[in-house]
Amino acid sequence: MSFELGMMAAAGETGGSFWMPPEISTSAAGVDWIFYFIFWISLFFFLLIVGLMTYFVVRYRRPKGVEAEGAPSHNMVLEVTWSVIPLILVIVIFYLGFKGFMDLFTSPQNAYEVLVTGQKWKWLFQYPNGYVDENLHVPVDVPVRLVMSSEDVIHSLYIPAFRVKRDVVPGRYTKAWFQATQAGDYQIFCAEYCGKSHSDMLAKVVVEKPGDFEKWLEKASNFLDTMPPAEAGARLYKTRGCAQCHSIDGTSGIGPTFKGVFGETVVMVGGAKVAVDENYLRESINEPQVRVVAGYQPVMPTFKGRLKDKEITAIIEYIKSLER
């Protein structure tokens, strides 16, 4: 068991304390201060209770047959005292907790806004220029506000290093904010149970050094120009909603799988046979209701005007790369 305890100490993240992970946001220190304030009060009372209990057990342990020497069974002063002292302490704790919460709750006016979508089982972060990424990149020392919504069930965005957590609820928007204080990669969890891959609904916050964030965003936003088309297509597949209905592992979802579909001849609703080539794929993206594969509902929305030609090309290249 001492081996385990030793490993535990070694496993702690760098910079954290025994109880808390490292403090990487402006709010973290305040939260931790309250945590430790309560901790020391609790430890005091715990030691008092267990100490008295142990002392009484040792001091007053008697063999069977010996009766108690007797002491009063009621003392108003004492009882009121131990009602009032905890009362005062919890009022103090309540006040500190509430004040700290208002700091976490109220985001500054000038915060940089990122739109967050939770869905089974990944996070999507959309930046003001429309670019969508699977990880959250933020500039250091700048307040960032997250405006969050869910596509399906309730999720909860949790960044332990920032002491930030907020439920992400379908049909409404919730907000969270933070200001990172130190560059580096930090873990994002989903904290509200959301099904099979709940524990894999992870992402990273990448806190960029001053100036690096803008460079990253520009480069990332231009991924169509800098990446091979198939790779760019893979990214679009994940971030533009294709993945919700079209699998890439051969299983059929709400729409047919992308795996190995290119070059095949497929039967349409109505019986016509169509060879899946670039032009058919392009048509299916722009006018999905025209020719629907047999066995599927015509439920796909059009992406005409929502995907640029270059993006459509990249997606087609990606589908071509998914061999059987």
Partner: peptide, 18 residues
């Protein structure tokens, strides 16, 4: 268990209305 298709007309992942 698969997530449903975006409802007709609007793609909710483009949450401009935030």
């Amino acid at each position: 268990p698969v997530a449903p298709p975006p409802p007709t007309g609007e793609d909710r992942s483009l949450i401009e209305a935030a």
